[in-house]
Amino acid sequence: MQFQFAQQGLTWHDTYFLAEGLLNTLELAASATVVGTIGGVVLGWVRTVSVTARVATTPIVDILRSVPMIIQLILANSFLSLAGFSTSPFIFGTVALGAWMAAVTAEVVRAGLLSVPPQYGKSARSLGMNRRQELVYISLPLAFRTALAPWINLVLSLIKDSALAGVIGYVDYMRATQTLITRTHETWVLLLGAGFLYFIICYPVSKYSRRLERKIAV
């Protein structure tokens, strides 16, 4: 008797699998964005005000930016496992993507803070604000204006990079697509579906950020 595979073609149940993958992609991107942005704002502020901190953190920022994300993911996965944190791929992905996001956001935040004329800060201080008030009410809002568009671009990079989380076993949209391609061999439908999905997430946002860039440049 010849061996026969169970049903191989695409079925409607697979859309559920893909939807789950999409949800996982968005969850990972969102959590890495939150972690990375909070870390990046703190790191960027520290790097702006203290020369010592800048010198001390430069190698870390530098390394995170010149090592491929796929290797950072594998390292986060294996290192955290060695260190005894046997948690989910979601956490590993958040750590790796969040660390990268923090490093690049720090530079954007620093550029934003440096774009605030020093006189503004001094005026705020002379009006009787303390350093924290000056930062929260004067410098950060002004820095936000400059940093917003580049930050949006970083979030888009993060969403696209999260497609690599499949390497450490996280079933994101790309991984779900790959799994279905392996089973059904409907390569083009699934692959173009994935491309289309990432495109409709990223395209409007990147259009918006470019408009924002132009508006701020004027």
Binding site: L156, K160, D161, A163, L164, M174, L191, A194, G195, Y198, F199, C202, Y203, S206
Partner: peptide, 11 residues
């Protein structure tokens, strides 16, 4: 340009 910039490199 839009395709290259708005889809993941792995795609």
């Amino acid at each position: 340009v839009e395709l290259a910039r708005n889809t993941p490199a792995v795609f």
